[in-house]
Simulated scan of single mutants.
Amino acid sequence: MARRYVVLDVFTDRALSGNPLAVVLDAEGLDGNQMQAIAREFNLSETVFVLKPADEANRARLRIFTVNHELPFAGHPTVGTAVLLAIRDGVETSTDFVLEENVGEVPCHINIRGPRTGSATFTVPRLSEIVTAGELSIDACAQALGLDRSDIGFDGYKPVVASAGVPFVCIPLASRSALARISPSAGRLIGAFGGEAESVYVFCRDEDGEGDLRARMFAANMGIDEDPATGSAAAALAAVLFAGERPGEGFHVFDILQGVEMGRPSLVRLGLEVSGGALSAVTIGGGAVVVSEGTIHA
């Protein structure tokens, strides 16, 4: 059967940067094994399959696959698919709708800026939390990343596991120099963190002021050597930033630059809503650009 697909670059406003995403629009009738095989064929960090929603009030149901397994939730697939569906709906300015993912319902606000580009912001369906704290060895983190012990940590931040549906080892680094010097190997990463989380997200303050933070993400267990932009990791980081920055009441935005070292610069906009002294909502936003489309016969 011929099934239409579109490839977008996400967390960017220009083609050939950001994080590539494949979206299969005609996914009805495919089972999970077929979806997994198609995702391996595209060989991108994630591939989305668009299905009819369980609730007719919602826009669509999404299933999201890496090259080797299905995810309950992911950021750049949500942003990219939301922008694509709004474009296909003929939206000229902005719209709101809900996408269904395995983690739950995901409310999205979309702005369209042209026939092939737009941006989307969604509310993370599950509040992020620190799953483990104070249990990760700084020496193990340094060794896994090919860094020195002194490169790990800043301003009281220490390595933790955090999750907003997908767990990440979140490792703070002392400088952008350390971020650039990372030389991980799949074996070292899996050996150090395989039992804790599937992915390793490293972050530091952006010393040049281009953003608030700089980040890189490695996911050996997912078959991803490095990811150019990771919305689900930024969502997990929200709990870490809430504990470390102690923001006051109201809405706070952190711009996270990722993918620079890969030549795929990306910008993830992370929003934290604080109410009653607690983290009450997390949002993820970014741009998306359609770069190609076609038909897959599967």
Rank of each mutant, 00 (worst) to 15 (best):
A2P: 07
R3H: 03
V7T: 12
L8K: 09
T12D: 02
D26R: 07
A27P: 02
A27K: 04
R40L: 08
R40Y: 05
F42I: 11
F49Y: 07
A57H: 11
R61E: 04
I64N: 03
L71E: 05
P72S: 06
T81I: 04
V83D: 03
V83S: 10
R88S: 08
R88Y: 02
T95S: 15
T95Q: 12
F97S: 13
H109R: 15
N111Y: 10
G118C: 10
S119D: 12
F122E: 01
R126W: 06
R126Y: 09
G134V: 06
A144E: 01
L147K: 00
D148K: 15
F154W: 07
D155L: 06
I171D: 05
S183L: 12
G187W: 00
G187H: 08
G191K: 04
S199D: 13
G209A: 08
G209Q: 09
R216P: 03
M217Y: 10
I224C: 06
A234N: 15
L241E: 02
G244K: 15
G250M: 06
H252E: 08
V253S: 13
L257D: 01
L257H: 14
P265C: 04
S266L: 06
L272I: 13
L272N: 08
G277A: 00
G285Y: 09
E293R: 11
E293L: 08
E293G: 15
